[in-house]
Simulated scan of single mutants.
Amino acid sequence: MIEADETTGAPVAAALLEPVLECLRARPSGLTEHALIAQLRDQGVEPFAGARLREPLSLFQTHFLLFHCLYRLRERLWPQGEWVRIHCLDIGIEPARGGSRPRAEGLPVLRDPLRAYYLDLTQLERMDAAAVEALLGEFWARMGRDERRDQALAVLELADPVDADTVRHQYRRMAQRHHPDRGGDTATLQRINEARWILLAGA
């Protein structure tokens, strides 16, 4: 199923490009990654038809291969005046806009790290079950850090982006307001202290 691209030497899942493109053409308004995989599965397109999406490794492989195809299709369709939107919640084809190369996620395509990642099939080949589990662990740890940061910002009545000086200034202002000597309470002051350290650690 995976063959070499004679032009670039990069491996390409060439046999999958047309089925993916057909699904996108059939849904001009776009669809989610889950819906696209379901369509490919229902059409019997391998490896999507046999994917075991409850298993982390199979899920990762399915996701990676689909996004590899989407980035390949983006490169194919762009010279024809079409742009492939690539996001897990919004995949579709639309007319390319602007005189220069279109932008994805607000950044020029040539600087898009996701493009480079998904076009490199060695990334897929080196991922085994243990590596996927580690990747998921990092993801959930990052989610936990992000949630703690959001809570800390709320305690200090701040919103991103903030720098360390802003955090310190707001901390002093709120610590004075909620200090027990000024009618505040110790529990609130402790939350303010904790929020300061969380934000300064990530600043």
Rank of each mutant, 00 (worst) to 15 (best):
L121N: 04
Q80H: 13
L21I: 05
H34T: 14
M127F: 08
L36Y: 05
G99K: 08
A96S: 11
R54W: 04
H63R: 12
V84G: 04
L119K: 15
R101H: 02
D90S: 15
L114R: 15
R72P: 00
G92H: 13
E18M: 13
E18V: 14
R111N: 06
T32L: 03
H34F: 10
P19G: 07
D128V: 02
Y118E: 12
R103H: 10
G106S: 04
L124F: 09
L77N: 08
W78D: 09
L89R: 14
L59S: 13
R54C: 00
G44F: 12
L121F: 04
F67G: 00
A35D: 14
E105W: 11
V20W: 06
P11E: 14
G50Y: 01
W78R: 13
A15Y: 02
C88N: 07
G44R: 10
R126M: 07
T122G: 02
H87F: 05
G9M: 08
L65P: 05
F48T: 06
R52K: 06
L114N: 15
R126I: 08
S100A: 07
V12A: 10
E125Y: 10
G30C: 08
T32N: 07
F48N: 03
V45C: 05
Q80G: 06
H68K: 06
L119V: 11
Y117R: 04
L89C: 09
I86G: 02
D42H: 12
R126P: 01
A130E: 13
W78Y: 06
P79M: 13
A116S: 14
S100V: 04
A13P: 03
D42W: 08
L119P: 05
L17A: 08
C88T: 12
E105K: 07
I93Y: 03
L36H: 02
E46V: 02
Y118S: 11
F64Q: 03
Y71L: 02
A130F: 11
L53P: 06
G92I: 13
R54K: 12
D42L: 09
A49I: 01
A116W: 08
L65M: 12
H87G: 03
M127N: 07
L17N: 06
R52V: 01
R74V: 01
W78N: 11
R25Y: 10
L36A: 01
A131I: 01
T122K: 12
R41K: 15
T62W: 05
S29F: 07
